[in-house]
Design a protein around this nucleic acid. Structure first.
Length: 298
DNA sequence: TACGGACCTTTC
DNA sequence: AAAGGTCCGT
């Protein structure tokens, strides 16, 4: 999408997932996906997109294609409650970033963490990457596995990574031993169960991160990341006996199975509507209890 | 197999 | 206390 090409009319678009590499830049949003850079600005009722990627690549990143539209329609027909959620959250899309290494390490910063610090850590990691030709100087592509593996725990600790300073370079070294980025990418073609087993074998990667990586980086639609929001929703609506109990491996599995039974390969997409709805509810509750905060896209 | 607690840091 | 958890010990 070179400068001066006709604007894409995207309508209202709410996304979730791998947004760690996007930032506010004046009136527009800027972001990186693999070696692509994009800038998105409001244009009347729609959005105008410029960048180093093609229109198809941008649409793929944000699920703005016919296949996605049909999948969304399918999950809303499969289940009445899901149909209502999809109606309330029209425009929500599962992101499909193009670089699994980038996505995997972005998610490794998220454990027991909050968005502001996640964003900061992702900026630090990206600072070790090369700049992207044709993009602003600050827009770096994510560093290669070898560069992450070469980082010392001490350095990352000094930059505020906490205990993740140990596991992040360690996971990169482990991936290199297994066959590097080709190994990670090959897990996209493996069965979900196998991908999940391999990913949870990485240091710092448990059930939840493995499912995030499987779903967002590798396209495993059966992956259902169960985080605190999804746990809250499921113990409220589906497994009330579990309220007040802890999230064990078995319960984690049962929640995923519940959605996989109903939505199959679209379980991960269905899960996202539950996640976002619950997250927005708890957020608006906080706002009611305290003071309004500036409107932030997801 | 289930549960508790430690782990880094910041905060609506 | 909780935040888009993981790991280890009992």
């Amino acid at each position: 999408m070179p400068e001066g090409s006709p604007p894409l009319d995207l309508g209202l678009c709410l996304t979730c997932g791998q947004v760690f590499r996007w930032w506010r830049d004046g009136e527009s949003w800027a972001g990186v996906d693999g070696d692509r850079f994009y800038r998105v600005a409001r244009d009347g009722t729609g959005l105008q997109v410029h960048g180093t990627g093609t229109e198809d690549e941008f649409k793929s990143l944000f699920g703005l294609d016919e296949t996605t539209a049909r999948s969304i329609e399918r999950i809303s027909r499969l289940d009445a409650a899901m149909g209502e959620r999809v109606g309330r959250l029209a425009g929500l899309r599962l992101m499909r970033p193009g670089c699994p290494v980038e996505t995997a390490f972005c998610f490794m910063t998220t454990s027991n963490n909050h968005l502001a610090r996640i964003h900061q850590m992702v900026r630090v990691l990206a600072s070790y990457g090369d700049r992207i030709p044709g993009a602003p100087v600050g827009a770096k592509r994510f560093p290669a596995l070898e560069r992450i593996a070469a980082l010392s725990e001490e350095e990352l600790r000094s930059k505020g990574f906490g205990y993740r300073a140990r596991t992040i370079p360690l996971a990169a070294r482990r991936m290199i031993e297994s066959g590097g980025k080709e190994w990670l990418e090959s897990l996209a073609k493996a069965p979900y169960e196998e991908a999940n087993r391999e990913l949870t074998g990485l240091p710092g990667v448990g059930n939840k991160l493995a499912d995030c990586i499987a779903l967002f980086a590798l396209g495993h639609g059966s992956a259902v990341p169960v985080d605190t929001h999804v746990w809250r929703a499921m113990t409220r609506d589906v497994f009330p006996d579990w309220r007040g109990k802890s999230l064990t491996d078995q319960r984690y599995r049962a929640i995923g199975d519940f959605l996989r039974e109903r939505f199959g390969e679209l379980a991960g997409m269905a899960h996202q509507y539950i996640f976002v709805e619950t997250m927005l509810m708890s957020r608006s509750q906080r706002i009611r209890e305290r003071r309004p905060e500036p409107a932030e896209p997801l």
